[in-house]
Design a protein around this nucleic acid. Structure first.
Lengths: 219, 219
DNA sequence: CAAACCATTGGATGAGCGTTCAATCAGGAA
DNA sequence: TTCCTGATTGAACGCTCATCCAATGGTTTG
């Protein structure tokens, strides 16, 4: 855990430079997400990104080689954030398969993840993904890893409870339902609170795995 | 049901003109969908649409007032196709609430609907919808109508079988899961056959409503 | 303090695109 | 056949945008 010699001094100048640079990159990625959420992918311009970041017009091409690279890095940031979130949740969930499965699903509704801004960006990329292999690769890897972890939880839980269920079909359905809730969040501007989505997910868990989950309270 | 005098003659010249015009419009809308599916929304140009339709560059602005209008009409076409599909399915399903619910869900997997081309277009629009009120309105209306019909089926089925389920949560989940399957179809280029999605949906039906649906065969 | 370096600016450039429109073409009417 | 209406073409226009770059300002180094 000890820092290497070259990075030992916390306030070393070279360090501050690097930190500042990293912060700027993040500011630009954040501005990119805001712009996509506000204007849509196809109307996002580098000028708008720079404006939202409060910086000058030419700045993006200094920090990122091109617009395409900026977009790819933005997507990569989102994928990494999501990956870390479910891994953290899994670590915190302990060893009970039921709690592990629930933890993996509930990650989708964490405030940091379940924001209209970020969901808008995910959907913008999905809309473009087919034609841009670089984006598709990032999406696919994120999806594959998450699905594999989800599959593992589901398989264990089905064995554990001797449920008569096809694990792949169940896993696929749980994965799909959270993506569908994201879409609701994106297109349905009013109503459904986070709690409603959590409740629907809990209900689904209790319905598929009644020995491990109890039905949430009803109105 | 009788045609009005002015449209009575099947091969009247004025009719042929109108028919040809309508056919051209459809060709252009189809080319638009192909272009969006191939290149993504943000890289779709009118030149590409015209090329795909095998027509000249300026043609789109003759049939549609602007690029925006062409896109809006494309979306409207998809929404209308979907609406008609589930209404037809509902009419054919008879009066049994269980069969009506299943029919409404299976519409999502009809070949005409569940094609990568069309799903790519849906997702492209969802990615842009937030920033374009005209698109959002079409999407919302389509969603609202479908959800209302779905809700009605679910409510009836829950009453009918005296299930202890929150109808809104159930309806929301079934709606979400099909949208999620669409996303799988879009981003996951290989594997899952239509039959797998149908099986997962049937499994979900059987799990929520065991008195009305039996678990599909297992491997 | 001076010198060197690096981040940052904002205007210039050129490509690509939507839109327009005058010219051309085809098919039905007379 | 000839005329006429409306469909279709494709080149031209003007605008927006990504990219580039020479000049500037600020900060670290010696």
């Amino acid at each position: 855990m000890a820092a290497s010699p070259s990075t030992a001094a916390p306030a070393a100048p070279a360090n501050r430079r690097e930190e500042a640079k990293e912060r700027r990159r993040m500011e630009l990625i954040d501005a990119t997400m805001r712009s996509i959420a506000k204007r849509g992918f196809s109307e996002t311009t580098l000028a708008d990104v720079a404006d939202l970041a409060g910086l000058s017009r030419g700045i993006v091409n200094f920090y990122f080689k091109s617009k395409d690279v900026l977009f790819a890095e933005t997507l990569r940031f989102l994928a990494e954030e999501f990956r870390q979130a479910w891994r953290r949740a899994l670590a915190k969930a302990g060893s009970d398969p039921a709690q592990r499965l629930r933890a993996m699903l509930m990650v989708n509704f964490e405030p940091r993840i379940f924001s209209r801004k970020k969901i808008a960006v995910w959907y913008a990329f999905w809309g473009e993904a087919k034609s841009r292999p670089a984006y598709l690769a990032v999406c696919e890897e994120k999806d594959r890893e998450y699905r594999e972890a989800l599959d593992a939880c589901v398989v264990l839980l089905i064995e554990n409870g001797r449920y008569n269920l096809d694990p792949l079909a169940v896993s696929r359905s749980f994965d799909a339902v959270t993506d569908g809730f994201w879409l609701d969040r994106l297109t349905d501007p009013q109503c459904p609170q986070v709690e409603d989505f959590v409740a629907a997910t809990d209900l689904m868990l209790a319905t598929y795995f009644p020995k491990h989950f109890s039905t949430p309270g009803r109105a």
